[in-house]
Design a protein around this nucleic acid. Structure first.
Lengths: 139, 139
DNA sequence: GTAACTGCAAAATATTTGCATCCTT
DNA sequence: AAGGATGCAAATATTTTGCAGTTAC
């Protein structure tokens, strides 16, 4: 289990450093989507704010995490699931859910975004769907 | 035509001020979703940055505009369409499209977000769908 | 040993708040 | 006249950049 973070890094040809492992651990332990701020709260004493920015940026570029849009000026990040990581490019086609009560955002990995038909002339590249409401824990 | 902004304000029981009218005009003229920054570029010499923040906040609360999530740390705002405004509360259930080429975000008012079935225990309150790709103007 | 990563400092940018003044009604 | 809106100043917070020192491979 302790290996998991390292493996992710190696699979993405990134050097294994304490900061990166720690941030991956935070994601793995949380299971939620996390904003920069959430991560910072958990490791600000260990690592510089700037390192967190750069690490998240690197993870995004390597496809280790994906970002989840929001209307609250707080982009969140979530670990891509295994077949997303191993396939080399993203299949980030699941619905995201943000609970208005506990504030947590989660990936509903099993819920695929339904296809839509764009108007004539539009080409789709990515699609994002975020639902807010009350999650099963808070109901 | 020049009246339109004033009417929107009056319908929402807001006092009609130069700043609010100007910002509404910018929205009406643009037809796109605009970020705070976009608005500021068009009226920074006339109005204070802070006024723009406060005006957007007020418009949001009154349901004159709705915000559109994004993954680029730049929440955008768009005018609600008429029946959204007049009905008193939001039916912001249309798909949004962001063009990777020209960067513009638009409301696809006619494209309704398809219904989805959330997992057991989840309750939906709002739903947001943002598609990115190439718009009909840039294709 | 070398390239990549990190911390620190600092700059640039963005957002919020308080208060005095001005404007709308 | 009264309440709300605005401008200005300033406090806070966020994000980016450069560079020197450190670490992973």
């Amino acid at each position: 289990m302790k290996k998991q973070g390292e493996e992710i890094l190696k699979n993405s040809a990134l050097s294994v450093t304490a900061g990166r492992k720690r941030i991956l651990d935070i994601f793995l332990a949380s299971g939620n989507a996390l904003a920069h701020q959430d991560i910072e709260m958990q490791c600000a004493e260990q690592f510089d704010r700037v390192t967190i920015y750069r690490t998240l940026q690197t993870f995004l570029e390597k496809g280790i995490i994906h970002n989840i849009p929001s209307t609250d000026n707080m982009v969140r990040y979530a670990l891509c699931n295994d077949n997303c990581i191993t396939s080399g490019h993203h299949h980030d086609n699941h619905v995201h859910f943000k609970c208005d009560d506990c504030g947590k955002t989660v990936c509903l990995d099993d819920l695929v975004i339904p296809a839509i038909k764009l108007p004539q002339g539009y080409t789709m590249k990515e699609i994002n769907m975020v639902v807010s409401g009350v999650c099963k824990t808070c109901k």
